[in-house]
Design a protein around this nucleic acid. Structure first.
Ligand SMILES: [Mn+2]
Ligand SMILES: [Mn+2]
Ligand SMILES: [Zn+2]
Ligand SMILES: [Zn+2]
Lengths: 147, 147
DNA sequence: TACACTATTTATAACGATTACAATGTAAGA
DNA sequence: TCTTACATTGTAATCGTTATAAATAGTGTA
């Protein structure tokens, strides 16, 4: 399954004239196998055993290449660092305010909200961003035990 | 109307033991009269005529005080600086990708999405964040003219 | 193969928003 | 007035990210 995703991603890159370097291959592979929405630094640290000389700039550069190719989505937050999500299909995220965990969940697109917003404001609407915030089960369990 | 809001805000602050300094008064007044979701630097520059010695740290400090008191909401984005919104009632935002303008719009809370997310993920849900992105009428007009 | 050309990586400096810190100022209460 | 806690100011530090320039590695051509 993820083998196919990797192959498709590499093909998509090649077809736009982007060279497949060992670093790019490794970053992409890591992204596809990761379920935890890693930061650039997560990726950098995960790959420093196999690429001791890799620069953190390389990670950022390639994440931008992947983003422009539509392979990766960047999840931005105010304070801390961006997280990156390998694009499979559209989904929303629910985020734990205690441990920072980001979990996928699926829900039909909010077309009606987009339409109303466009109608009321006169904007031409392109997309929207929705995130749910709360506390995950692990963290709920921990606070329950601590009492 | 905004006089009442200002008085209520000042009373709310006083009741929690926060002193009302001239700087705080001015920042709060500016927030209430502003409709454009200013950044800390917007506020700083708007007030530097009346407070030539005010530090930008004072603006940040007080915005944090206001946020903790529930008077102000911080709108965070990845790259650029936070924007601040005086809390009146709950509303969503639609954002222009060309000029960065942020416009309020109202829509019933997405309770159903929150419920489903909680059910599927086991999270205890606290709140959500929804933003619509697109192009505002002004920017649509400009690109139409330019052609 | 040798060469030129371009993409890519690396190392490091720079950037910008925000925060930390220490010194100074201010106001309320005893 | 004296004390004390709170606020402001000026500046240094932080941190994620980007820019830059030099080094490296492919790719195509003669
Ligand atoms: Mn995801
Ligand atoms: Mn608003
Ligand atoms: Zn958690
Ligand atoms: Zn616009």
């Amino acid at each position: 399954m993820s083998e196919v995703q990797l192959k498709d991603a590499l093909d998509a890159l090649k077809s736009t004239g982007v060279r497949i370097t060992p670093q790019r291959h490794a970053i992409l592979e890591y992204m596809i196998h990761s379920t935890m929405h890693p930061t650039a630094d997560d990726i950098y640290r995960a790959l420093e055993k196999t690429f001791p000389n890799m620069s953190v700039a390389t990670v950022y550069n390639n994440l931008r290449v992947f983003r422009k190719a539509g392979l990766v989505k960047e999840l931005t937050y105010g304070d801390s660092s961006s997280r990156f999500d390998f694009v499979t299909h559209d989904h929303y995220h629910i985020i734990c305010n205690d441990c920072g965990k980001i979990v996928d969940f699926h829900y039909p697109g909010l077309d009606e909200v987009e339409h109303l917003a466009s109608h009321v404001t006169g904007f031409q609407v392109d997309y929207h961003r929705l995130e749910i915030y709360g506390t995950c089960q692990d963290c709920l369990g921990k606070t329950a035990k601590a009492q």
